[in-house]
Design a protein around this nucleic acid. Sequence first.
DNA 1: AAGAGTAGCAACCGCATCCTT
DNA 2: GAAGGATGCGGTTGCTACTCT
Length: 217
Amino acid sequence: MVRRAIVDKNGLKKGTWSREEDDKLRAYIQRYGCWNWRKIPKFAGLSRCGKSCRLRWLNYLRPGVKHGNFSEEEDDLIIQMHRKHGNKWSRIAKKLPGRTDNEIKNHWHTNLKKHHKQMQTAVQEKDDPRENSESVVDHIEMLETENSVTNATSQEKMGERISCLPSQDTFWEELSPLCCGYSSVPEVNCTAGTGLTSMKILEESNVDFWTGEGLIL
DNA sequence: AAGAGTAGCAACCGCATCCTT
DNA sequence: GAAGGATGCGGTTGCTACTCT
């Protein structure tokens, strides 16, 4: 299920990524971070365009990316999010840690679309009470809205909670190879360092690893 | 067994938006 | 504020594997 690798007129390779290319890109980004997607292929020794590298990293090589079957919970969430936001795949992906917008989009077109149509037909035939009740998505987003309203307070709390983090620069320098693809980092008030690794700190601080936002518990 | 049709998904393309100068 | 470059996003394509006839 892959595209044959070809070389275009500019000498840039297209199509399937080989293992060797994956290794090169992964090694480069883990070492230097993704400071400029256009220049990375050159420095990493790849005959690919920056866009292609970015996509490959975000969808496959990035640590934490889940592959394989979607759970029922994930399916439900996708369906509800799609009902609410339409084809806003990146937005939907933010609610599913480890899933990429591309994967969700594919999953929707191959599996959920059919299911969704069946559901809609069923709803039209028999008025589905779920259509009128508050969905999980609505509830989550309502909480998020409340969270953003009290953002200042939250940030203060966040500052307190992770005031033990290393300096901001050190912190994101260490994390940058893992956080590539996200153009912004959260405004985190970091102060004195500790012996904890950044990953460990993230795990313990209720900060969403992928978005940098505080998690709703 | 073989050819046709379909499903699944990685990857590309082009436009939109953001960021920097 | 304008322009140009970088990045993000969603639609679409192309290829292989699988299923059906």
